[in-house]
Design a protein around this nucleic acid. Structure first.
Lengths: 211, 211
DNA sequence: ACAAAGAATGAATAATGATTCACTATTTCA
DNA sequence: TGAAATAGTGAATCATTATTCATTCTTTGT
């Protein structure tokens, strides 16, 4: 016997994989999935195109992983807003919705890719999962709110889906790459008028209470 | 001189064009844009593939026209619901939203193509227009409602965008081709629970009044 | 019937990039 | 050092369809 995979090698491979992921991520964050080329990613990661296929079944698989990664970041942040905010469940939910919208407006290219860019089926599947992940977070908060009594009884799952839809749709226009360069700066002070208008609708739909 | 386009010819060409459009429409209504092939459309329309290019610049152009056509039908129906329903602006708007959702559930394949199927850029553009068309209808109704006093003052454009988003997102799951065969029959009696739940959220978001 | 003009045809082409794979290089261990 | 095992390479291949265009067919007016 001669060669057996050693720790050192395992690590080196993991590094290469990581480099590929990172470069692919950057490509997508710069100009979306559609224009991201395997060749380009390979070059920028300093490997041959073939090497990418030693780490990923296919381009779609790689992209699905990128999507999942980007998604996880976002969902985590929203989950965090949900847990670290004070006040009742309705307050916490509002903070989470705000986080969702504001983060999107801050990273518009990636947000557009995640929300609205036409993508291949495997990636589209991830998108459905991503939207569902948000919905589930919101759903849980609504359930809590109903228990606390600060949110009226309702179909929490259905409402959470509506919340995701209302926000996503409201962002499509502003994020659309045809009007890049808009939305110059966004303050941290809960005062973006677009975000406020979205939130008003969402919270009203949720609580049936005029703001 | 010898040949000059005559009325008869003009008509015959128009018929061929119409046939192409109809067949393309059927293809899409059966299984979406992605799987619709120019060759298949040509065969079913009884023309050569080349002939399609005498009538349309490109596949995308043809599909954009199909999209526009399908869209127009839907938007017209919603507009009709908006004008023919009795009651105040809020009632009329509710009827329109209901029409939007119910029609989608009745023609799920086409609805999915219009709402969520990944499509090429030119067609995607039509989709934005389509969503905007709905939003504009709703916006107008909201404006009327604010004048009538039955809808509180708000940013009508923003609200209408949220309405479109909430409904569309709520439909994505149920329309998704992976779970075709669901949603077996839908009565005309304003009683589909999914539709009712969506409408509750929408109307609350709009009026801030609990249902 | 004929020639000019245009329409229709559909097999061949083109374009695009993802993917492969025969080969080279590297790692490991006796 | 050398042989086995695996990793890396990237030019060539493949697959998929939309699109083209040289050719054939139709229509029209004389």
């Amino acid at each position: 016997m001669a060669y057996r995979e050693t720790e050192k090698m395992r690590q080196r491979k993991a590094e290469a994989r990581q480099r590929i992921v990172t470069c692919a991520y950057q490509c997508v964050a710069e100009s979306g999935f559609r224009s991201a080329r395997i060749t380009t990613i390979a070059v920028s990661a300093g490997v041959a195109t073939g090497t990418i296929y030693r780490h990923f079944e296919s381009k779609e698989d790689l992209f699905a992983e990128i999507f999942r990664l980007a998604t996880q970041r976002e969902v985590d942040k929203v989950a965090q807003a949900l847990t670290t905010t004070g006040g009742n469940a309705a307050n916490r939910l509002e903070a989470a919705l705000r986080q969702f919208a504001e983060r999107a407006l801050r990273g518009p290219v990636m947000a557009w890719s995640l929300i609205a860019e036409p993508v291949d089926p495997k990636v589209e599947e991830e998108r459905l999962a991503y939207r569902k992940a948000y919905a589930r977070l919101f759903e849980q908060a609504i359930d809590e709110g109903m228990n606390e009594g600060c949110i009226p009884e309702q179909d929490a799952r259905q409402t959470s889906t509506c919340l995701v839809g209302a926000i996503a749709e409201s962002l499509v226009g502003p994020l659309s790459p045809t009007q890049a360069g808009d939305q110059p700066d966004l303050k941290d002070d809960n005062n973006d008028p677009l975000v406020n208008a979205i939130l008003r609708f969402c919270m009203q739909g949720l609580t049936g209470t005029r703001r």
